[in-house]
Design a protein around this nucleic acid. Sequence first.
DNA 1: GAAACCATGGGAGCTTTTCCCGTTTTGCCG
DNA 2: CGGCAAAACGGGAAAAGCTCCCATGGTTTC
Lengths: 223, 223
Amino acid sequence: MANKISVLLVDDHAVVRAGYKTYLSLSERIGAVYEADRGETACQVYDKQTPDVVVMDLSMPGLGGLESVRRLLVRYPNCKILVFSIHNELVYVTRAIKAGAKGYITKNNEPDTLVTAVCTLAEGGTYIEPALAQQLAVNMAIGQDEAYKVKSLSPREFDIFCLLANGLSTRQAAEKLCLSYKTVCNHSTAIKEKLNVKTMSELTLLAGRQGIIKTGSELYEHS
Amino acid sequence: MANKISVLLVDDHAVVRAGYKTYLSLSERIGAVYEADRGETACQVYDKQTPDVVVMDLSMPGLGGLESVRRLLVRYPNCKILVFSIHNELVYVTRAIKAGAKGYITKNNEPDTLVTAVCTLAEGGTYIEPALAQQLAVNMAIGQDEAYKVKSLSPREFDIFCLLANGLSTRQAAEKLCLSYKTVCNHSTAIKEKLNVKTMSELTLLAGRQGIIKTGSELYEHS
DNA sequence: GAAACCATGGGAGCTTTTCCCGTTTTGCCG
DNA sequence: CGGCAAAACGGGAAAAGCTCCCATGGTTTC
């Protein structure tokens, strides 16, 4: 084992950072621990310190975790980012990986997992929480990914999906699109079928997770 | 200043507890720090250790934070509970105080605030995050916005509101609460009336803005 | 102890959704 | 070019869901 690993913690909560920092410092494999309170500052700190691993929370004001990951990678394509989130939904994992993160773990783990993951990334590996990786694999095979389901909507169905998810009634949507009420009803049924949801609330929630609701950025990236 | 303050940390994430524990221990005013991973265990630990202050996270599987607060207070009416949450939405503050918590702070604060709040509670005071107390006051005066409308829901209505907003059908909600389907229907109508929404999607969106949507799998977790 | 409020649900009637059907348009491909 | 599949559109009947009105019983509150 060569040098100690330097880490950059990105989280908007100072308390949380303080906690992790103290905890990480207990390991003798980990050296300096830097902090940043958001994506914007993370870039600056990274530039100055070039830490081995970045530990990034997903829910942050401003850029948000995912966008921060992307920006960091644009500037420093080799940087190793471990997403450390409370979310155990697959959407987040998928997005994080797609954004270029090298690892994803949730806060449900043993404290020790954080150290393990950090070390794995430092050595050039990837670390995705086993349970999530498992589910992802299954999901991929079955093709039950939400994003995939949304893509399976026909153009017109997608239009209607958006309107309904944003709170319009079937009638209002029909009016807005100059369609018969019945047509919208029928489309709506097809949409729910394709997205595999039963209630309008579920549909709205799914739309939120998929970023289809305008005001929804904080809705799903925040806590 | 007499003895050191003993604290019970309730949070389902072991990492998070580890962090806070380490941090709290740095203060010389704080002594023993106990841990519990959920409401159910919190009661047991409390019984054994009778800590001076309970620091409770709101988002937990099983009982959930609010219900845990209530149960603790039923058994130990004098116990001092500080809710320590990521949510800065007023709904949570109101609900927490109504449930009997003696303090409410968010994780957006300086780490030091946690210590301050714990000490205040230990001395028999209350500590509500100044910014939130501020907003609450204003809100009370104006009282015509969404948060206010949500507060106008009766306890039972609020329960049902949460379930419906999180995607359950009327029937599922009824089953979950051991109620007649009709009762839930009737409540649902009243809720929509009070919140001034027409569709379930609108209701879900409002819930989202008010921070009532569960982003985790807490929903399915207790049977 | 009356008034007020809440939780609970039944019944009738209305509205919405589903399911099944047909028509029309469009784009694609051998 | 003719055929064909997919999409968009909508009607009608039946099922499901919701609203409105009502009644009961419990708990506070004054």
